[in-house]
Every structure is written in C-alpha cells, then in structure tokens.
C-alpha cells in the first residue's frame, strides 16, 4: 500500500460519520433557525460537542483527551462547518485541556480588532496564554454583527493568540464544510425548481454555476487534507486561501442559483454566506496567506 494516500481509514470514516450523525440529530435546520433568533450560545449543545471530543480531540489520552491528530480534527471541523454550528469552535479547540470541560474560549482576531462570542466566553486566548474573559469584556465595545449567529465585539488592548497556522487550518476545514453545503444546496435546488417547464438545472448557464462549485471545492479539499497531514505552514496558507474562496464564492453562486428565494431572510443561504465571510477574516486573511506564500517563492 502506498503512503501517498488520501483515502480515509475506517476509523477516520467512523469519526466523521459519528460527528455528522450527532449534528444531524442535535443541530438540524430547526435548531439552526432557533439559534439564529436566540441570544447567546446554547451551552448544553456546547457541552455535548465537548463530550463528543470536538475540543479535546488532539489532547493526549493521558491528559484526558482523545489523542488524535490534525487530519481527524479537520474531518470533524468540516462536519461542524457544514452544519453551521455557532460558537468559537477553533479557539476552544486550541485551548484544549487548558480550559475546564464546557468552557467557551474565544480569541481576539488581532490586537484592537474584532472578537466573536465575547459575551458567552469564559476565557480569551492571548499570546500563548488563556485570560479570563471578564476584563477583556469590560474593555470591549459591542458591534452589530452581519452574521446573525456570531455576535461581535471590538476589543481594546488584548493581544492576538499564537498557533495561528493550526487555527487557520481548522477554519479552512469549517469553510470546506460550507463549500460542500453550498454545492449540495445549489444542486438540489437546481434539480427541483422548474421554470419554462423544466428544471433550471437543465440550463447550461445554471449547470456551469453548479459545476464551478465542485471545481472550487475539490482542490480546496485536497489542499486542506494535505495540509492536515504535513502541517506545513505554506500548505496551510494555501488551504486557507482555497477554502475561503470555495466557501465565499461557492455561497455567492449558491445564492444566485436560488434566485429571489436566496435573497430572503427565511432561506438558510444567507446564514452560510455570512459565516463564510466571517471565517475568511479570521486567523489568516487572504492578503496574509498570499504574502506568506509569496515570501516562500
């Protein structure tokens, strides 16, 4: 058997399937819409995600974690992205066993910049350490967030965290989940919606929009999975770039395929698009990733 192998092991498949089933049951469409109308995080769901290992997946078993690696983390984060789970998933995962089970850990995106879910947070990642959230909260101003599921504050004086590359990769995995959702939703709608007496998916212009969704998602998937295996900063920068594009441009095309329905608040399309915009600004923005890749040339 070759070592250049993207095929998932049985354990990896089972892990992904387990997360998908958990989220299908626990965070389906109704829960998503309820979360969009609610104030604050569902701490019960947060605890369940923690119990399922989402935040301690890479903590060694001796320290009470699951003892798995980045490839496994990427697979479960992709599922969380597809289900559009709200909350500071990446920061809480980075905190790992340093925060007690059930804690919500967020991070300042950059010094003086935005910070998500600060009202719900117990801790804030800063530098190499973990700060109590309260003083950070006291110095921050709320911002009216474009993403209904991600409350934002503007921080003051708190440093951003280290370990940006791992965070960027996990964020890329979330974006990959959104890119997959965009493709599935666009294709399903194109098959079902009829105009001029036939499904709109039989029109080449619509077909090509849908095909482009796959053409963006597949290279992004190869980049994200490869970066998870190598952990190479350059490959992670590429993964974040491609996954951001697959998610953002993918959701724009998904919205276009949905026509007028896509522009409504009632359709879920805008929730996924707005989160894709948000994640594109987190951890490693396009300009930063491009400069990192250019510097290595």
């Amino acid at each position: 058997m070759s070592d250049v192998d993207f095929r998932l092991t049985d354990d990896q498949r089972a892990l992904r399937q387990g997360m998908r089933e958990l989220l299908d049951g626990r965070f389906g469409r109704e829960a998503l819409r309820a979360a969009a109308d609610a104030d604050g995080l569902d701490r019960e769901l947060w605890r369940e995600l923690g119990e399922a290992g989402l935040f301690t997946l890479r903590v060694p078993e001796a320290d009470g974690g699951v003892g798995l690696g980045l490839p496994e983390a990427v697979l479960v984060f992709e599922e969380a992205g597809r289900a559009l789970v709200p909350g500071p998933l990446v920061a809480t995962h980075l905190a790992g066993a340093r925060a007690e089970p059930g804690s919500v850990v967020t991070a300042v995106w950059e010094e003086g910049g935005l910070v998500d879910h600060l009202a719900d947070a117990d801790y804030v990642l800063a530098g190499d350490g973990l700060l109590p959230a309260e003083p950070v909260r006291a110095a921050a101003e709320p911002v009216r967030s474009v993403d209904p599921l991600t409350p934002l504050h503007r921080s003051a004086g708190t440093a951003g965290p280290r370990a940006v590359h791992e965070a960027a990769l996990l964020t890329a995995a979330l974006q990959l989940g959104t890119a997959g959702w965009a493709m599935d939703a666009a294709v399903a709608y194109a098959k079902e919606r009829e105009q001029f007496g036939r499904p709109i998916g039989s029109f080449q212009a619509v077909q090509h929009l849908c095909a482009r969704l796959l053409v963006r998602a597949e290279p992004a998937r190869a980049a994200v999975y490869a970066a998870a295996v190598t952990g190479d900063p350059g490959e992670i920068a590429a993964a974040k770039l491609l996954a951001d594009e697959a998610a953002v441009a993918g959701m724009r095309d998904c919205l276009q395929v949905h026509g007028g329905m896509g522009f409504t608040w009632e359709a879920d399309v805008h929730l996924h698009l707005k989160r894709a915009w948000l994640r594109a600004e987190q951890w490693q923005r396009a300009g930063v990733a491009e400069e990192e890749l250019a510097a290595a040339l």
């Binding site: 290279p219 992004a220 190869a222 980049a223 490869a226 350059g234 490959e235 920068a237 590429a238 993964a239 770039l241 491609l242 396009a286 990733a289 491009e290 400069e291 990192e292 890749l293 250019a294 510097a295 290595a296 040339l297």
Partner: peptide, 11 residues
C-alpha cells in the same frame, strides 16, 4: 498574485 498562484499549483 504570485503568492496565490503558488497556493493554487501546490493544491
């Protein structure tokens, strides 16, 4: 632009 292309060809 060159940085993005580097990511693209790597992928």
């Amino acid at each position: 632009r060159l940085g993005r292309l580097s990511g693209e060809f790597g992928a």
